[in-house]
């Protein structure tokens, strides 16, 4: 690759940053029995500790299945999946998750929505009742960092979509998880709010340095936030390319006009277009046969 700042490597030479925190080796996932229910095949991916990874791909490429695999909510059909050095055999307990839909509980105010994980995760669960003041302060501070000071006692329906999504982010981070899984968290927001929340998420990540896997179809979002971008093919999903984004942090909306940034977005876009047309040809060939 001529551009020095961006080393674009193919999947054979996948980057091994630090010691891999998430290590996906040859994993496939099949729903049911027949061949066309293969959602993910031959997936190889490593994410270092404290690294921000993004997974992009055409719609229906099994990005959400990947989320379920990594968090242990679905077992892989074949292959090996390790998180923090241990094989994933059941739901992990160190994960924070946020989705496109904020999934806040309408009967709880913002503060107690944010504190929901503390009622479940140990050791907070046992300590919560006696140290409620301390935990409430923790939650208030976290809400303040995403700009929700003063909204603690409001209910979700009183807030805009962007604010609900900020709350959802806080809820996924309140118990200081080592791994944050985001499934198109800003997909339902308007462009301006989305760019605002990119900055919010980047700030949180730079303060806390959790390992993060972001699944998205927004290439600019991936390039803005991630250290490394994995491009998935159409169904059955596998990694067709890996890109390191070596732009300095903190990145701003200005960074998105940087030629390097534009370049990487273009490159990924053409790869996804290629993946889509491969898929169409395959479908056409299968139809003709």
């Amino acid at each position: 690759m001529p551009n020095g700042a961006l080393s674009i490597v193919d999947k054979a030479a996948a980057p091994a940053a630090a010691a891999p925190f998430v290590d996906i080796e040859n994993v496939s996932l099949r729903y049911g029995e027949s061949a066309d229910t293969l959602a993910i095949t031959d997936l190889r991916m490593t994410v270092g500790k404290g690294e921000f990874a993004a997974v992009v791909g055409p719609s229906g490429c099994g990005k959400s299945s990947l989320m379920k695999l990594v968090t242990g909510l679905l077992p892989p059909t074949t292959g090996d999946l390790r998180v923090a050095g241990a094989r994933v055999t059941g739901p992990l307990k160190i994960v924070g998750m946020a989705f496109q839909n904020s999934t806040l509980l309408p009967w709880r105010d913002i503060l107690s929505n944010t504190m929901l994980p503390l009622e479940i995760v140990q050791p907070h669960r046992n300590r919560l009742r006696r140290n409620r003041k301390e935990y409430e302060e923790l939650a208030c501070n976290l809400l303040a960092t995403v700009g929700l000071r003063g909204f603690e006692k409001k209910h979700p329906w009183m807030l805009s979509g962007g604010m609900q999504q900020r709350t959802s982010l806080c809820r996924s981070l309140i118990h200081s998880p080592e791994l944050l899984m985001l499934d198109e968290p800003f997909g339902a927001l308007d462009a301006f709010t989305r760019e605002e929340l990119w900055a919010v998420l980047q700030d949180l990540w730079m303060q806390r340095r959790f390992t993060c896997i972001l699944v998205t179809h927004d290439l600019r979002e991936a390039a803005y936030l991630a250290d490394v971008i994995y491009v998935m093919s159409a169904r059955p999903g596998r990694i067709v390319a890996t890109h390191r984004v070596d732009l300095p942090r903190p990145r701003t909306v200005e960074s998105t006009f940087d030629p390097k940034f534009v370049d990487i977005v273009h490159k990924i876009r053409s790869e996804i277009a290629q993946a889509r047309s491969d898929d169409r040809q395959r479908t056409a060939a299968a139809g003709a046969a």
Partner: peptide, 24 residues
């Protein structure tokens, strides 16, 4: 999704019932 969030925190089925199912 909400069930996934709670299960990935290590919630038992009883937890999910008490925190989400019954209030809902």
């Amino acid at each position: 999704e909400l069930e996934d969030v709670l299960r990935s925190l290590g919630a038992t089925r009883l937890d999910i019932l008490a925190k989400v199912g019954i209030p809902r």
